[in-house]
């Protein structure tokens, strides 16, 4: 299980390849990548703040729960912070399991929990100014299905 919280961009292809190469015995690898939207060209970027003392711990807990619940061979979470331009990758998860159902479910679980239980806050930057992204009720509701 690798958890990385970093300002630097990551190489999605290289990360998925390296992850896949290390998961002996798995029959399925699922990856998800979140990108900065440009909202029809109105956004100039996004600034992501996090709580350094808590972020790694929170993500590790979420990932360990996913590994245990779906009997994953391995899991990977990379999440960036700082200033990002539209189109840049914000984060990625990868899960490896014996079968694809478990790999997909675990990846969705990771995304649902990272969204509202990992201490990151997004601020949208545009020509008109800046605005903190508000959490949606649907984000919290998404946790109930697990």
């Amino acid at each position: 299980m690798r958890i990385a919280v970093q300002a630097e961009p990551f190489d999605l292809g290289a990360e998925v390849s390296a992850f896949t190469a290390g998961v002996r015995g798995a029959g399925a690898v699922v990856s998800f990548t979140g990108l900065v939207r440009d909202e029809g060209g109105s956004l100039s970027g996004m600034e992501i703040e996090h709580y350094p003392g808590m972020t790694g711990k929170a993500i590790s807990g979420i990932a360990a729960e996913a590994v245990a619940r779906w009997n994953l061979v391995d899991a990977l979470v990379i999440h960036r912070y700082g200033k990002l331009a539209p189109g840049e990758a914000i984060m990625m998860v990868a899960t490896a399991a014996l079968h694809r159902g478990d790999a997909f479910a675990a990846a969705e679980y990771l995304m649902d929990y990272l969204k509202s239980r990992a201490p990151f806050w997004k601020k949208e930057l545009s020509a008109g100014g800046e605005a903190w992204v508000a959490a949606k009720d649907s984000d919290e509701d998404a946790l109930k299905r697990w």
Binding site: M111, F120, W121, A135, D139
Partner: peptide
Amino acid sequence: FFPPMTGG
């Protein structure tokens, strides 16, 4: 203290 988180 912080607002609801918006990770992912």
